Structure formats: structure tokens, C-alpha cells
Computed example of a mutant assay.
Amino acid sequence: MSSATVNGITIEYDVHGPDDGETVLLVMGLATQMIAWPSAFIEHLTDAGYRVVRFDNRDIGLSSKTQAPLPTRKDVMKALASSRLAHSDYLLSHMAADAIGLLDHLGVDRVHVVGASMGGMIAQEIAIGYPQRVRSLVSIMSNTGDRRHGRVGAKLLPQLRKTLLAAPPRTREEAVDRGVLAWRQIAGPHFDEQYFRALVVESLERSTDSIGSTRQLLAIQASPDRTPALRHVTAPTLVVHGLRDKLVLPSGGIATARAVPGSRLLMFPDMGHDLPTPRLAEIAGAIVENARRGA
């Protein structure tokens, strides 16, 4: 792995695949490190000839942590109650600028950008703010920022609030168990506990900072609705969503596909808020097909 200094912060990243391949930029979601992109998924893309770049967003993993007063519980509750009450040290547009800075560091002019969850929001911001840098766009299990669509499921919301406001875990084992439980709550029927336990352990070995996830949540809540701007996106766009998604309801994917002219919508009946192993090849194949539209 390597690091780059962009916008006054350090971004951790790694690169896979042939040096002469068109670049696919993978943008991960809230509180989730770049290692959450499954190796098999990356291999599908590199086998198709693409160069894959993934990175830790600011405030997660090995990238820089914001040096500012910590958000309070009151700040979080206000932000969850209304986006008008959300205040953040940065917005999703600033995280998009981080990604562009990384591309500049790598000397990459144009990319196929693929984002999952919050990463899908950042990918949309990249396509909106830097259209000349985007060959194609893929938004996975995400939304447009319109609070009417792609909200958290009513049954899951109390659990998330409890998790956000819980006291820090007292032991390493408790931290791992909490992480696995969090994935179990949002994943679909193909949940693989052994895989996610290994992912949580590896994530904790890289970084134990937990404040970053709160800062990222506030950035989401404080960022504006992207729907009007998405109507001007011209890059070939694929929207992927799971019909079993409880964290970002499927209406978020539908709204995204409706917002971007000419976009394609791919929905899976056995996918939650995760990248299920049995669907990786199909999702990667659809990404490659969309990338070829923008080649």
C-alpha cells in the first residue's frame, strides 16, 4: 500500500492490475475501509484488463483523521433528525475532491468511478463536479441525497441509533463481535460470518479509530440533495441495488437511476447492504459492460 498527500491530508491507497489498463476507482462507504472491497471482485475487474485503485476515505483506515473538536451526541441526534440541523467539518464534495487529488497524484486523467453506499454518493459528486475526469459511473446501494428516497429502514433505525450512541467496546473481542453484528444487521441472506469476522479483525488491525465514522455520517447529513445536478451527468451510468437493503432502502437506487439520463438499473432480490459473494461476478460483469460504454 502507498499514500499520497492531497488537499493537505494523507490518503492511503493501493493499485491492482495491469499498468496500461483503464483505471477503475473504487470508493468505499461509511465507516468502511478500502479492504472491504472483496478480492474476488477486484480480480474480476483486473482479469478484464482494468487497473483498479482503491483508497481509504479521510477519517477512516490509514488516511488522515480530522483535527477538530469531536462531535457530541447532541450533534449526531440533531443531524439524524434533520439535515438542516447537521453541521460538519466537511461535505461529500470535499471527499470527492480528495479522490480527484489522488488521481492527480497517480497521473490518471480519466477513470471509471465505482462507489458503494456513501462511496456511491462520493462517486456521484465526482461525476457532477469533475465530468471531464469520468469515463463511466457506477453507484451501488446508494441514494441521491433526497431524504424521501433511500432512507434507513424503520426497523433498522433504532438499532443504528443505539450503535452510534453506545459506549466504546471494553475489549478487542467485544469490538470484533460488535463489528460482525453491525454487518449482520445490514447484510442480505448470503451473510458469511467467517468472512466478515476476518474483515473486522483486519480492519481493527489497521485502525481502531471510531470517531471518523461519526464525522463521515455528519458529512452525509450536511450535504445537499444531488438530484438536480445528477440530471446533467452524461457519463454512462449503472445503478446497482439490493431489494433486501435495509440501510439504504431500494427507493434510493431507483431515484438515482431516474435522476441520471440514460442510466441502467440492476437490482438483486438476494442482496442487502453488502456485496454478496454469489453476485460478485455478475456485478463486476455489469460494471465492465458499463465501462465499455464509456471507453
Rank of each mutant, 00 (worst) to 15 (best):
P250M: 00
V248P: 06
L230Q: 11
H241T: 15
A229Y: 00
V233R: 07
R231E: 03
P236L: 10
R258H: 10
P261C: 02
S263V: 07
G252Y: 09
K246P: 03
A229M: 13
T234D: 11
G242V: 07
A257L: 05
H241V: 12
P261A: 03
P250V: 05
L243Y: 07
A235H: 00
L249M: 15
V248E: 10
I254L: 13
A257S: 13
S251P: 08
G242S: 11
P250Q: 03
P250C: 06
I254H: 10
G253V: 07
A255N: 15
A257R: 09
V239H: 04
L249R: 08
G262Y: 07
T237P: 06
A257C: 07
P236Q: 13
D245G: 06
A255Q: 09
P261R: 09
R258L: 04
S263E: 13
R258T: 08
I254Q: 14
A255I: 00
K246T: 15
A235N: 01
H241N: 13
L247I: 12
S251G: 14
V260K: 13
R258F: 00
L243H: 10
P250T: 04
H241A: 14
V248D: 09
V233S: 01
R258Q: 03
G253E: 00
R244C: 10
G262P: 09
R231Q: 09
T234K: 12
T234R: 14
G252K: 08
R231N: 06
A257T: 11
A229E: 14
A235S: 12
G242C: 09
T256V: 14
G252R: 08
H232I: 02
L243N: 03
R231I: 05
T234N: 06
R258C: 04
R231H: 15
A259E: 04
